[in-house]
Design a protein around this nucleic acid. Structure first.
Length: 112
RNA sequence: GAAGCUGACUAGACAGUCGCCGCCCAGCAAUGGGGGGAGGAAAGUCCGGGCUACACAGAGCAGGAUGACGGCUAACGGCCGUACGCUGAAAGUGCUUAGGCAUAUAAGGCGAGGAAUAGGGCCACAGAGACGAGUCGCAUUAAUCUGCUUGCAGAUUAAUCGGGUGAAACGCGGUAACCUCCAUCUGUAGCAAGACCAAAUAGGCUGGCGAUAGCGUGGCUCGCGCUGUCAGCGGGUAGGUCGCUUGAGUUUGUGAGUAAUUGCAAACCUAGAGGAAUGACUGUCACUCAUGCAAAUGAGAACAGAACCCGGCUUAUCGGUCAGCUUCCAUU
């Protein structure tokens, strides 16, 4: 099984994000808030929204995005046909990779 | 060796697993192989330039910027050198109530420093009076008037500027970080600049076809205009391509110059995205701190992420390495 992460697995357009938010289903965990919506693409897609207000420096925002993408990449093959929008919370600062990964998987499991 | 200071470099290293974005090669394709992939500030957007469009960017006015002298540079408000002013440590010296205090220089650091006789404005406190020159009080001298004891007192006027205040007082004061004047520079917008290709839809222009369709103009005919249909053209939207990284380039050697900088030669190509790649995790070794005799264990590891490109400035920053300058002490 390939663990590759392709462009069609990302949410890119403003419309994609809007439709997920308009579906109005979200779950909040320790470090993350996930909005979701079923899609018809035969695979899951992810988008990460990091607020400039909460995370002022670009380095911090990029780091969060890279980590979320990595967690998604290593686990997405057993996800359903879902569009996910992940928003980090303030508590994410200083959290280790494993704790963050567990939180994410727990939230995704709840969606089912 | 100690203290003070200046400049340059670096910004953990290696391995493994799984990935991302361009480029090149092979392949019909799937894919495979090769090679590259953040910073010293990428930041703030404070100056200066290249580049592009606007009329060819040229002249004048307004506005803005700069301001010792000389140099460097594509250019600068930057950098280098020199002079001047301020600042700048131990030691030494003097005093001491033994706590200190005073005194001066080194390397170095800082400096909105053109013009006050072109002109206007302003000058705290103190002082009678602060920028127009006169005036308050006191003193001296002279003159006049009054009182009268004929040499005293008072008043007025004029002159002297004697005393006191202050940085400065009928002066060739200060302030330009108040206006101003002088000299030099300065057009505006910015890669979402701008150039090219160009679907669909709507509308525009040109030409053909309608031998007699309809409407309008008109008394009627011709004609003309609109509606029809076919072909072509140009503008232009979505979208795409270019601009887009070979450049005031980097490294090394060598020559010129006190230096900033620069001549010559050789070698090299070093991110180029477009909802935005440059990563995540694990291990070993180094670095710092804590505990410990040690082995070791635990924790920490800054500031911060390219978006047209350069030269600077400013701000943020854990550590480490190297070189140089000055002073003092010790040794030879």
């Amino acid at each position: 099984m390939s663990l590759a992460f392709k462009k069609q697995q990302k949410l890119l357009k403003t419309d994609d994000f809007s439709s997920v938010f308009d579906f109005r289903r979200a779950l909040t965990g320790k470090y993350l808030t996930i909005s979701y919506k079923p899609n018809s693409m035969h695979h899951a897609r992810i988008g990460v929204v990091v607020a400039k207000k909460s995370f002022p420096t670009a380095v911090e925002r990029n780091f969060i995005k890279r980590r979320m993408r990595e967690i998604f990449r290593l686990n997405c093959h057993h996800f359903q046909e879902l569009d996910l929008v992940v928003r980090p919370r303030q508590q994410i600062r200083g959290v280790g990779y494993n704790a963050l990964c567990a939180d994410f998987l727990e939230l995704v499991a709840k969606i089912r």
